[in-house]
Design a protein around this nucleic acid. Structure first.
Length: 480
RNA sequence: CGGGGUGUAGCGCAGUUUGGUAGCGCAUCUGGUUUGGGACCAGAGGGCCGCGGGUUCAAAUCCUGCCACCCCGACCA
């Protein structure tokens, strides 16, 4: 290994050597996050936050285009409200943070910091809703929630995380179900069109579903190391909460009834997914549509006359809708900058130097394949726009290929155990649908049933895990 | 909460065995030369050696108590 090659390798532990360490190296060295004084809580730095903002921008538009409105509910929830839905409190109680004092006074009733907002939102919906004419309620909020996790990892599992949570009410079950699936569909499109991450969608088992849900739907992505990541969930909550919170309305038939209820959310965990699906040993590889910097322009020998002027001229030519930055910091060599922005995952690098200006061209290199070539200055905007799309498509295809190569059918439990050991990924199999069998899978392999996919395949009529009669085809994987 | 590990400059580490002026690399700052894959020279700043107690003429180093963080398990968007 040459000295030059060694230098970036030393910065980031190769993922084949130690995947968790690779992940930690990448997120800290690329300035996405920093650890805070409070364990499990992290600071999202400007470069990381800009990714989140781009995700927000895209999704917020999708939500509004489908009729949702944003609002904001309080951070603190009285204990009595949290307790109203029995399954819900049982699921969340172990991980809520409590506020017990206001100033020096002990509170009469302690307040929990929201781990999710169904309860406080339902308490308000109960106050508001009177008639079927007001339905549906289609609300969303962008906020943070706190869950006191025992072990945390930046983006993937932190004690506080940023997310959006949609909470809707509907007149009928069918409408609620339609909403639940519509939002999961938007999540899937966001994953594929914005983040270039292929996902499997389906329904969660009862064991894995949201505490208090009638049914939970999920999208699951496969990371580079073969572990799955639950990337977003959409819940049909039926009337569980609306009955517990006594949300009622006067229906078309003149009778008082409970509405049907959904909730759905995605979080900053998505950023962890982006890193682990696309990243390589040089660092981040960011999907073009959400990269904070889409094009980094590096002037070469910038002290020479005309170089910087040309760079700024080209930036203008590229237009306001492409996120372009020029690094004209004179303290770093071009080589240093090349490595820096590769590490940061910037999709396109453009070099402009005296030789290029002479030939009326620039050097352009793409992060996903690391290919570098000369292109004419004329038509640069069109070249860049189509290259950004190209990179997106290539990244999505590459991720899909990786997922497919790591998705396999199993013949029986022994075969499954062996495959989980040797080559983690999505195992496809038939499942009997019982809790005992599901618990046993986890006990034996630490893998879990990720979902019962919408696209069911017929892989036989016996459960691959216990031999009983099969009910569902499932994806099983070790998960983050 | 169990098992293992680590705490020395912003980061990465040496020094601890055998007590004796707190060091190295990177980063940072100043000046200059450089600039097509992590540039070079000269100079500078930066420390409660995790915290408390003890032993000693003398503690980063020995004894002791505590704390924090990391990794592996159990719990989880």
């Amino acid at each position: 290994m040459s000295k030059k090659e060694k230098q970036f390798v030393e910065d980031i532990t190769p993922m084949e050597v130690d995947f968790p360490q690779w992940y930690t190296d990448v997120i800290t060295k690329t300035d996405l996050v920093d650890y805070s004084p409070v364990r499990g809580f992290m600071v999202i730095k400007p470069y990381g936050y800009a990714i989140w903002e781009n995700i927000q921008k895209y999704m917020d538009k999708r939500f509004k285009d489908t009729g949702h409105k944003n609002c904001y509910f309080p951070l603190l929830i009285p204990e009595s409200l949290l307790k109203k839905e029995a399954e819900h409190v049982e699921g969340f109680a172990p991980e809520v943070a409590w506020v017990t004092h206001g100033g020096k006074e002990e509170l009469q009733e302690r307040l929990c910091v929201r781990p999710t907002s169904e309860t406080i939102i339902c308490s308000m919906y109960a106050k508001w809703l009177k008639s079927y004419r007001e339905l549906p309620y289609l609300y969303n909020q962008w906020c943070s929630v706190v869950r006191w996790e025992k072990s945390t990892r930046p983006f993937l599992r932190t004690s506080e995380f940023l997310w959006q949570e949609g909470h809707t009410l509907h007149e009928t079950y069918d409408e609620a179900q339609e909403e639940t699936l519509q939002m999961l569909g938007i999540y899937k499109e966001t994953a594929e069109e914005l983040m270039a991450i292929p996902v499997v969608t389906g329904r969660k088992s009862d064991k894995e579903k949201f505490a208090g849900a009638y049914a939970t739907y999920t999208m699951e992505a496969l990371m580079h190391d073969g572990k799955a990541l639950q990337a977003g969930t959409s819940h049909n909550l039926g009337q569980h909460f609306t009955k517990a919170f006594e949300i009622t309305f006067l229906g078309r038939n003149g009778e008082i009834q409970n509405p049907y209820h959904t909730s759905w959310g995605v979080s900053t965990r998505l950023i962890g997914g982006i890193i682990m699906v696309h990243g390589d040993n040089r660092g981040l590889v960011l999907p073009p549509r959400l990269a904070p910097i889409q094009v980094i322009m590096i002037p070469i020998a910038q002290h020479k006359e005309g170089v910087l002027d040309k760079a700024y001229e080209l930036k203008k030519l590229l237009g306001d809708d492409i996120r372009v930055e020029i690094d004209d910091n004179d303290n770093y060599s071009p080589g240093w900058k090349f490595n820096e922005y590769e590490m940061k995952g910037v999709p396109i690098r453009i070099e402009v130097g005296p030789k290029d200006i002479e030939k009326n061209q620039v050097m352009i290199s793409r992060r996903d394949t690391l290919e570098k070539q000369a292109v004419p200055m004329e038509g640069l905007r069109e070249t860049v726009l189509s290259l950004l799309d190209d990179i997106h498509n290539n990244m999505l295809e590459r991720a899909r290929k990786h997922r497919d190569e790591n998705t396999y059918s199993i013949s029986d439990f022994e075969d499954f155990k062996q495959k989980m050991e040797e080559k983690p990924g999505f195992a496809k199999g038939m499942w009997c649908g019982t809790r005992e069998c599901e618990d046993n899978i986890k006990a034996e392999t630490s893998a879990t049933i990720r979902c019962m996919p919408f696209e069911q395949e017929d892989l036989g009529d016996k459960c691959h895990f216990c031999g009983k009669e099969a009910k569902h085809m499932v994806y099983v994987a070790k998960a983050y």
